[in-house]
Computed example of a mutant assay.
Amino acid sequence: MELRPLALSEVVEIHPSRHSDERGYFSEIFRQDWFRTHVANVDFVQENQSLSANAGTIRGLHFQTPPFAQGKLVRCLAGAIFDVAVDLRAGSPRYGQWVATELTAEEGNQLWVPEGFAHGFCTLEPDTVVCYKVTAYYSPEHDKGTAWDDKDIGVEWPNIADPTSLSAKDQVQPRLADLPACFPFEG
């Protein structure tokens, strides 16, 4: 596996090795010991999957607050996404900054989004399937978000992003300036 640090160094893109032949490929996509040594010493407790029928579907920006804060290991099983992480750690010198990468089924790359970061994505192809492991169970009371189009964050979404695809929940997410301090910066 190969790591590619992004501009927010805590967020990491992972490229699992693929061994190909005329039949296709084999890829080890996750090893707990490798992940703990090279990325983060965490345990994953739940795995989620979503299907987005249309290209341009926006999901996010989501996070869970402590004590159910989640780190996420995201990958695309079919199609492609523009995957985004936003630093929400109060006191961080990068508070409100974002990074993004394209995750594709073809490439098999993954994105590690640690606790203290909001996560969201825009599908780039129809029938896109996204799967992600999380480090805490889903808790409705701790499920939060921030506006996908907040100008204070300034995510440069792809032109295909379709605001009419937002869920009812995502249509009313607060702006960054209106979020309480949910995560401390421990840098």
Rank of each mutant, 00 (worst) to 15 (best):
T104E: 08
N159D: 15
I58R: 05
D152E: 13
A69H: 08
W34R: 04
A78M: 01
D162R: 09
V129G: 04
Y95H: 07
V99R: 06
D143H: 15
G187I: 08
F35H: 01
V113I: 12
V113C: 08
V42T: 06
V42F: 05
G60E: 07
G154T: 01
R23E: 12
T123I: 12
P174E: 14
C122D: 03
P16R: 01
D33K: 04
G91F: 07
G154S: 13
M1F: 03
L51S: 03
F121W: 05
S167I: 15
N41Y: 02
E2F: 05
A177K: 10
K133M: 06
C76N: 13
N41M: 07
H62M: 04
T101H: 01
P158N: 15
A90P: 00
N159I: 14
I160D: 06
G91A: 12
D127R: 02
S9H: 04
G108M: 10
H142Q: 15
W148I: 14
A118C: 13
F183L: 01
H119I: 00
V134L: 07
V45E: 13
P93C: 04
F117A: 11
T135G: 07
A53H: 11
G60P: 11
A168L: 12
T164L: 00
Q64G: 02
S9G: 12
E186T: 15
W148K: 03
S92D: 14
Q32R: 15
R36P: 07
A7K: 00
E106P: 03
G187E: 10
S92L: 12
E10C: 00
H119M: 05
C122H: 00
S165T: 06
S17G: 06
S17M: 14
R18W: 00
I14Q: 13
C182A: 05
E28N: 11
T123E: 08
L103E: 00
V45G: 07
I58S: 13
G187C: 06
F117P: 01
F183W: 07
A105Q: 13
I14D: 14
Y95T: 02
G96C: 05
L6M: 15
Y138A: 00
E10K: 06
T101F: 14
E28F: 06
R18Y: 08
L124I: 03
P66F: 10
P163V: 11
G145P: 11
A147S: 11
A105D: 09
Q46Y: 15
P16K: 01
L6C: 03
Q110A: 14
Q173A: 04
E106G: 13
R75P: 06
W98N: 01
D127P: 03
A147M: 12
R175T: 03
A181T: 09
I81Y: 05
D170T: 14
R18L: 03
E2G: 09
R4F: 13
G187A: 05
A85L: 03
S52K: 00
G96S: 12
R23M: 12
T57D: 05
K72C: 09
M1G: 09
Q32Y: 09
